[in-house]
Design a protein around this nucleic acid. Structure first.
Lengths: 344, 344
DNA sequence: TTGAAAGCGCTAACAA
DNA sequence: TTGTTAGCGCTTTCAA
């Protein structure tokens, strides 16, 4: 038998004032117009009854549910939990809670889940799983739902994005490999439908040219997904192409892990014979041998900043919001890079 | 400028019927009492206007928000994401969404977050972070909020729990170590305020006695938290006690990882000189050397079953719910266990 | 400074 | 089979 929670009406009855007075007394921003005595009396009664505001009712009236939606591909992918915590760290102090949904990177799921969020009247959406272009998401944003994309962006959409400096990450890594003496550097690229995959690939090409590297077709393999299995497939293709790369610059850590397991399976020493690098610096990476040299992105921070951005959009209809906020990345040198064989 | 979404009223106007008719036509369980023609007409109009039900309004009326709360210590701990996915797999097909909060195992946060969930009118709560006893949580359950605890339980509370067979896990592991020839087996226990810590410790003692093991005080070190750092501290204490254990049975994987790093730091070979075992089989464990022998718990499954249980409680006030559902565990043999030194 | 009254969008008696 | 009506708990305009 579910006891029904006390309402404003109960407090009103208890204190002998009108419910609207109670409402005003309990709301900091309208409290000013109420006598201190009355406020005190009301607060006491509220406390005593164990009153908790019913945000569903308030939400219906104000169309503010104090809830935001978070869309991610898969919380099981270890780069997302820190993002969620970062988001939470920005939202919770302001009284916002988050409804999280996993899209599994499926457009159909994604579209259904946007509706799940909207039906629940979320005040805004953080989208960490967006495709490079997605009319439905554009439409949601244009409808007026505050929306910010994380890690990825929809280009020319005017939708604010909080991303990592992917190009800089590739630059740091290519310079690092170059400095170690590598000249035949291959790239395992991420899916090009994702802005991260595309940007990192483009950066690889551009900066490779800057460095005067040879970049034949065999230097690049493109993964369909950011997974270990795709890393294995691409690494195998790269090794079989006859071009004999001395280093594999992978578009993320999971691809790199896959690449390393192929090397191990073939008895090719990493890093002595072939160097491998990752991107993201996911948790636990420093416990896996060989410890992967990678690019650290600020996962928590990206979540926090996106939360703050969303909050500003929710709270102020015409806040000035940068279309893209780029967070710096850093190179983390570990054990998966060595000079190429024969290099003194 | 946020366009206001179409409502039942809009559809009613469009089709020339009353809103209650529209409501009934759109709700599968009341649809039967409406003429097929009218239903069709209404559905068309709804489709055409892009109607999405406003669950906030419906929730206010029915006190069913189609939302459940999930409380976990920290989503960053890799055993929780699969639980969340399992939960989602049970809830989403039934139209339920989940609001997740991280308690960081802090009672104060936990209590505040329960209110966050209740204010939002969640239809039920999955609690994966419960302490062994917690009056506030008991109170919530007694108030009539459907509640199920996961992984841990509040004893003698009547609150349904979905847990892993912790005692069996300890038994499998102790038998395994015993069979390999170990006789001086130490235990790094988890926090005793958590039912997992307590149960695994008790099982260790009981089964140790069954096997005729010597179990002096020096055989057990108790961690304050399930963390690598505590694993290190406890392992150091065990190694320094003079009892010279040949195996460290740890109450979870993170403790085991800490223990292994202490061994490594001291130049003690694992598993050749000291064997170490974990519990949980968290993701990526199979990529970390030495690959940890551990107990696999069914993380996804525990989430799914708890979701189904909660659903039954929500949907049927007097459903028969088992107070505890125990899921089986399995031993995963990897490379961190060997016979003790000198054992033929 | 407080009260009265309306209404957010929906569902569910009750009537017709 | 459909319409009427009331009301979930709250906020907010208007009046007093």
């Amino acid at each position: 038998m579910k006891k029904s929670a006390p309402t404003l009406k109960d407090i009103a009855r208890e204190t002998g004032v009108h419910v609207s007075t109670v409402s005003r007394a309990l709301n900091p921003s309208t409290r000013t117009s109420i006598t201190d005595d009355v406020v005190k009396k009301i607060k006491n009664a509220a406390e005593q009854l164990g009153y908790r505001p019913n945000r569903v009712a308030a939400g219906l009236r104000t169309s503010r549910t104090m809830t935001v939606g978070l869309m991610i591909p898969d919380i099981t992918n270890s780069i997302f939990p820190p993002i969620l915590r970062g988001l939470e760290s920005a939202l919770e102090p302001m009284g916002y809670a988050v409804i999280m949904v996993n899209t599994d990177s499926l457009t159909s799921r994604e579209h259904a889940l946007v509706d799940v969020l909207r039906e629940r009247g979320v005040d805004g959406i953080i989208h960490a799983a967006v495709l490079r272009d997605d009319p439905k998401i554009r439409a949601v944003a244009e409808d007026g739902t505050p929306l910010v994309t994380v890690n990825r962006r929809i280009e020319n959409s005017g939708i604010p994005a909080v991303v990592n400096d992917d190009a800089m990450g590739v630059r740091l890594m290519l310079n690092h490999l170059y400095d170690k003496g590598h000249r035949r550097i291959a790239h395992i690229a991420g899916p090009v439908m994702l802005s991260t995959g595309e940007i990192r690939l483009r950066a690889f090409r551009e900066i490779g040219v800057e460095l005067g590297l040879d970049l034949p077709d065999q230097a690049i393999a493109t993964a369909d997904r950011f997974s270990e299995a795709e890393g294995e497939r691409c690494a195998a293709a790269l090794l079989d192409s006859g071009w004999n790369p001395t280093a594999l610059l992978c578009a993320n850590d999971r691809l790199a892990l896959g690449a390393i397991s192929v090397l191990r399976a073939r008895g090719i020493a990493c890093p002595e014979e072939v160097s491998v690098t990752g991107f993201n610096d996911m948790p636990f990476l420093d416990m896996i041998e060989p410890k992967l040299t990678t690019i650290r992105i600020q996962q928590f921070e990206v979540g926090r900043v996106s939360g703050e951005t969303l909050l500003r959009m929710i709270l102020d209809d015409n806040a000035e919001i940068a279309e893209v906020t780029t967070l710096p990345v850093t190179l983390v040198e570990r054990d998966s890079v060595a000079p190429p064989p024969g290099h003194s």
